[in-house]
Design a protein around this nucleic acid. Structure first.
Lengths: 257, 257
DNA sequence: CGCATATTTGATAGATTTCAATTTATGTGG
DNA sequence: CCACATAAATTGAAATCTATCAAATATGCG
């Protein structure tokens, strides 16, 4: 089982960055977030650390590695519904809705920070602007989820794969022009679970993309050889990620104290 | 174009019901919600009333009819990502994230109430518990969306259809034992857009379900002939709808004023 | 080095789409 | 209430995409 230990909350900074990219928080509010109690845990690849139907009393912040949120059908076949990278709260929604209807799985060796609901709720109650930032953060995830449905429902295997790789490139911060590369340690089984495909077909789809000179996936890293072509193949428009760091776009409903 | 007029906010009661089924609100908070300004509009079937990429300054509450939220691929093929019934706020998320990445379409002749973001934000800022209830409501939608991915990604056409019809039966309140029926005025094209199938295959799938004595869809109403068998065929577990009306399960983080 | 896991490939079956046509409902004006 | 126009539902045949099954090869890890 995953072991826990109390640590300094310095890794909360990454999460705070994520929040302040889209929401406006005062220094006091930001400090309050950094002061949250957090308990680190190592999770080996392919381990489920939140199970289907489990009611949790904490959220899981991804510090290192990759986490998949998933549901499954009656035959136990998994469908990954979200991929969470370092800095993401994998289940922030559980703060207001702790009865879980999906589960969390480490897709690679992962470090998470567990943060008690109780602490987050105290914070949200004391600082309405933090509750607002949490809400907004959940809505960004929902926006991504919504595109996920479009991807799985209305694109063929090639376009699905291209779209996912484009999304991951942006979210992993690989935004340089020309050749981009980023670490992405998923197996082809994981990719199949994410895209609603079998791993055999994932393999063939990747081969086709590789043969076309669009992208290679070797070992644990993705090399994007032709970003324009990949984005076209995947019908990719990054607007839904709300990743542009424009301070003008940041919102705050609640007045500062 | 849809015409607007100011009306009494009595139709907000249905929305308030939806909120208080899962959140705890004081009388004052409830009254504040009912006092929201609202502008009614009629929308004919198949009209888009929020367009892709549009930035809205109001939310749309469904009063009558059925609304679909959708995205689309580069060829304009639509994928419905959520179906909203009377009492649902189709885009409550836009309060904290107004840049839209999906659009709204009337799936049948529909009446909506437009409620300005400004009013909702004032309310959320003044009553943190209302912001919390809004957040929670959005999370219920996200939970449904998550299952939608599982449905489209990991079930065949028959199971997909069965699952959707089960979900709609519950959400339409058709919970009587034995034969259930409910109004569901979608065309087979709409069903295809919801399920990631062509309308031709929708037709064949419905025929198969009908021939098996599970369900019929005639005119604008669904008759469920064998609920158990349909739920089994659709691999349906209603937990994700969070529809059980157990007062014990209602949450409130924020202290009452 | 050797086992376990992951990737790759081939052949075949099955599911879904596409294209095209026909039939059936639905609504509207006379 | 009927005739008409339109939208929706239905059906068939062929093409395409994806899954399934089975096996071989590669890779990583202790």
């Amino acid at each position: 089982m995953a072991r826990s230990q109390s640590i300094q909350p310095s890794n909360l900074e990454h999460f705070l960055d994520r929040l302040t990219r889209r929401s406006v928080l005062t220094d006091e509010e930001q400090k309050a977030i950094l002061d949250l109690p957090a308990y680190a845990a190592q999770v080996p690849a392919n381990r489920d650390f939140v199970h289907l139907g489990e009611r949790v009393d904490h959220v899981s912040l991804v510090v290192e590695g990759i986490v998949g949120r998933f549901g499954q059908n009656s035959e136990g076949e998994r469908q990954i519904t979200a991929i969470h990278l370092p800095g993401d709260m994998a289940d922030l929604h559980s703060v207001v809705q702790p009865e879980g209807t999906s589960a969390l799985q480490a897709l690679s060796t992962t470090t998470i920070l567990r943060i008690p609901h109780a602490s987050l709720r105290t914070l949200a109650a004391r600082f309405p602007a933090i509750a607002e930032a949490f809400w907004r953060d959940c809505m960004v995830d929902a926006s991504i989820l919504s595109q996920w449905v479009v991807n799985v429902g209305r694109r063929d295997a090639r376009a699905r794969m291209a779209h996912l790789l484009c999304e991951m490139a942006i979210r992993c911060g690989a935004r340089d022009k020309g050749e981009r590369q980023f670490k992405f340690p998923l197996t082809q089984v994981h990719l199949g679970n994410a895209l609603g495909l079998t791993c055999v077909h994932v393999n063939r789809t990747l081969k086709a993309l590789r043969d076309n000179g669009l992208v290679t996936l070797r070992g644990r890293t993705v090399h994007i050889l032709d970003w324009e072509a990949l984005a076209r193949a995947g019908d990719f428009d990054p607007a839904y990620l709300h990743a542009d760091n424009d301070p003008e776009q940041r919102l705050r409903i609640v007045a500062a104290a």
